[in-house]
Each structure stands twice: as C-alpha cells, then as structure tokens.
Simulated scan of single mutants.
Amino acid sequence: MTYAVAALVDIDDFMVSEKTRGRPWALRQLQRADHAVRAATSARRDATCHPRPPEEWLIMLSGADPGALMSDAEELAEELRARIVRETAWTATVSLGGPSLEHVAAERDARRVNDYKLVLGGDRVIAPPAHESAAPTPPVRIEQELTRRVRAGDRNGAAGLLAGWVDRCAREPGADPRTLRNWLIGQLLFVVDVANRSRLADGSTDWVEACARLPIEDIIMVGDIHERSYLHIWLRETLGRLMPAAPRRDVLALAEAYLAEHYTDPGLRLATVAQAVSASPYYISHLFAEERRTTFLRHLTGLRLRHARRLLSTSALPVDVIAAHTGYPTAKALRSAFRRYVGCSPTEYRRAGLRPGS
C-alpha cells in the first residue's frame, strides 16, 4: 500500500510585495524561488514538484510507511523554507497534510492546513493540527469605536481598526481560520448596517440595498484569503466601497503625527505606533510602502537624523547627548545610522559645517 503526503509551499505576503515592488521584481524572485524548490526536491526519488502559479508549489511524497513518510516530509519542508529564505527576498510557509491513499485527498489536506497561516502567520512549517477547538466569542469587542469611525466616514481608520482587531483575535488561544472569518464577516455586516442610510418603514436596514454594496461573492472571497497582509488590503478596499466618502484623518496621517511627536523615544517600535492608532503593524507598513514609497523604519530614521543634523549644525552638544535627544540609545548607534544614511560620521558632518538641507 502506497501513501502520499502533500507539502504546499506558499510564498509569504506575495500580493503585497508584488504591489509595492512591481511585477518585474516579483517575477525575478519567483524564478529564484522556483529554482530553490526544484533543487530541494530533485534529489529525492519519492518526491514530485508541481508548480501552482502564481506563488505556490505542491510537493508530493510517496511511500509505504506513513510514519517515515511524515518524517521525510517534515525534513523536506524545513529545507524548502530555508532555501527560499536564503535564495530570495521572501520568506515562505510550508504546510503539510497527513498521509493519504489518494493524491487529491493529500493536496486537499495540505490546503486545509495552509489555511492556518491566517491565524499563525508565515515563515514556518505548519503540520496538521492535533485538534480544532474554536473560541466561542471574540476576545475584545470594537463595535462602539467602529461605529464612531464609520459614521465619521473614516474609511482607513475603520479598516485599520478591523485589521488590528483581526490580529488580536488571531492570537486568542483556540482561534482557528473558520472562526476568525466568521467573526470578521459578522463585523463586516455590522459595518453595512451602520453605514447603510436606506431604511425600511419600521426603521430596520434595507438589506436588499445593503447587499448591493457588499455582494455575496465578496463575503465568500474572505474564505480564500489566508494572508493577513492581503486581508488588510482587502479590508481597506472593501470598506472604501461600503462607506460613504467624508472628510477623514486616515491611519497613515495618524501614524505620521504620532511618529513626529514620539520619534525621540529610543523604545519606539512599529507595534507601539500600531497600538496608538488602533491599526495593525502589517497595515501601517503597507500604507508607508504604497502611499510614501518608503518603509516605517526609513521614515523614523529620517525624522531622527534630520533632528540630529540640525543639532550638529546649530549647537556644540556632544554626540552622545545628541544621540539621547534624537532617539538613539548610544552615540555608537547614531554614528552607525549617520554613516549608513548620510555617508559620514556626525563629527565629520559638524566639521564640514553642513546644514540640514545640504
């Protein structure tokens, strides 16, 4: 009797990276990933590789001993993940199904396991879960704040709040993909109810009109999303259609304002800013890439170095004091950032008599 085990190789955050870095760049990375996957499987007589465009590969292993087959699959999965990290600019998740007598069933099982990427995140090997026990209710409720943002027409604010809430729910013990999606669909229907201005005679929501703005196929599409980074983009686009346009302060503006006020704090992190503006780190990173064509870290570094250059040009403060005033824990950290982004040391910059705009 011959068993089959499927290993599904799935590039992490593919849609986001293609959107921010461009299709040509993504195609080059896909070629490298394909080479890495084929190199890892070519030496194994019991393994076959089947590309699943645009960013997946199905590896099928066959053998008579299901226990030994799972051990081989786990070893290969770790090798596949490590090769992609080493040979591309991406990370990858490899999901393993359980032993099956049919290849179709083995692939279906691996895809079911890959669904857990929505909860666990990427850059890992995911094995079949021992058991599935859903949490009964979400760990936090956000309807009051969500209502406020929807009624204010703050589309990005509402999307950021929902994205951060999804991340919080995913960390809940016992959370599974199906439960997480059910909770999210409930929140989306809540948004439809709050945003819909068309009411029936008794004051209830006109769901015929409301569902024209959130078609059933859009709700069904949630079931196909297993990347939280892409889910965050999808939420932003979906809420853009659901909510009426109105003056708003978006998540990016709030994040930039928070950074401008707190960049001198050496402990400032992306997670800190995300929590302060009720959004998720994934979402804020995406906004900096899409709207500003930069990264969160580069923006923060720019604020700190601009202040440091100003102090070097207008004061006689020692470098270690300037470091403390601009968010760097040590003078060494400031010197390292200066050499990397400015091209000289703080002392050389001061001696040259340069000005911040130079």
Rank of each mutant, 00 (worst) to 15 (best):
A4Q: 10
L8H: 04
I11K: 11
I11E: 09
D12W: 14
K19C: 09
G22F: 05
G22C: 00
R23D: 10
R28W: 05
Q29C: 01
R32C: 11
R32T: 02
H35N: 12
V37P: 13
V37R: 13
A40M: 03
R44T: 01
D46T: 11
D46K: 07
R52W: 06
R52S: 00
L61T: 11
P66E: 13
E75D: 12
R81G: 06
A82Q: 08
T88S: 15
A89E: 15
T93E: 01
G97C: 09
G98Q: 13
R108D: 14
R108K: 15
D109F: 00
A110V: 07
D115F: 00
D115Y: 00
Y116E: 05
E132F: 02
P138E: 10
P139F: 06
P139C: 12
R141T: 12
I142E: 04
E143S: 13
E145M: 09
L146T: 00
R148D: 07
R149M: 08
D154R: 10
G160D: 05
L162W: 01
R168T: 15
A175S: 14
T179V: 05
N182P: 00
V192F: 00
A195S: 12
L200P: 05
D202V: 00
G203I: 00
V208Y: 12
E217M: 08
V222Q: 10
H226P: 04
S229D: 08
L231G: 07
H232C: 14
I233H: 12
T238H: 12
T238V: 03
G240T: 02
M243T: 08
R249Q: 10
L254F: 04
A257E: 15
Y263T: 02
T264K: 01
P266L: 04
G267C: 04
L268S: 08
R269E: 14
T272A: 15
A279V: 02
E290H: 13
E290K: 14
E291A: 10
L300M: 09
L305M: 07
L317Y: 08
V319D: 04
H325V: 02
T330F: 06
R339T: 06
S345R: 09
S345V: 09
P346E: 01
P346D: 03
Y349T: 02
S358E: 03
